[in-house]
Design a protein around this nucleic acid. Sequence first.
DNA 1: ATGCCGCGCCCTGCGCGA
Length: 255
Amino acid sequence: MKIATWNVNSLRVRLAQLEEWLRRAEPDVLCLQETKVQDADFPVEAFAAQGYQVAFHGQPTYNGVAIAARGPLTDITRGLVGLEDDQCRALAATFAGLRVASLYVPNGTAVDSPRYPYKLGWLEALRAQSRQWLDRNPALVLAGDFNIAPEDRDVYDPSAWEGSVLVSAPERAAFAALIAEGLADALAGEGRDYSWWDYRAAAFRRNQGLRIDHILLGPPLAANFVRGAVDRAARAHPRPSDHAPVVIEVAWPPG
DNA sequence: ATGCCGCGCCCTGCGCGA
């Protein structure tokens, strides 16, 4: 079972790349973020042509999440329980016995921005929602753009980033609280790599990146983790997203 | 210190991203 997540930074702009990438990477389930497409305009046929069923939760201009899978997606839910949010940032569905969530955690903008407490509140709602999901089905996958670099080794220049948004202590504490619910950061060990590089200042060429896109696994999936990696080739593509896909394999169903 | 780039949608400049 191949599980992937990719912040595409506009599905419309990246659709041809994504179609090519699906043929090459062959994920069984793919979580997308920053689709920036409202539901009426979602390119369902492009996915169907490659055998993928889709669920999506989008709005014009900003945000937008989706899940594509090689099989039926059931029990689709939008948003997070207990959180009023007019931004389309969370979508969950059940596929092949897995509970899969595609997540676009708010950026926060800066630690002194009004969007920063919104980010921390959003993360607390995600933690509470994850507790519920795990209690219902421990085969949980949280995949997406978390907009948090969990440790200094996930940052190309930790001293330059110290205390700023994406690395600040409260954000890292919120990430740790998610993990403490019983989730494993799939690429915390082997395969650990940056997942985002700024478009500006030739950041990708200079490998000035951050690891902010993550796949978190519930216990039965973490126990059957096989391998994982960041697909840097996608970031090297002409006119790329600023994020690269994260792809993992788990032995699922087990045995 | 700022912009460096890229996206969307219209204020084709500006907000936003990370």
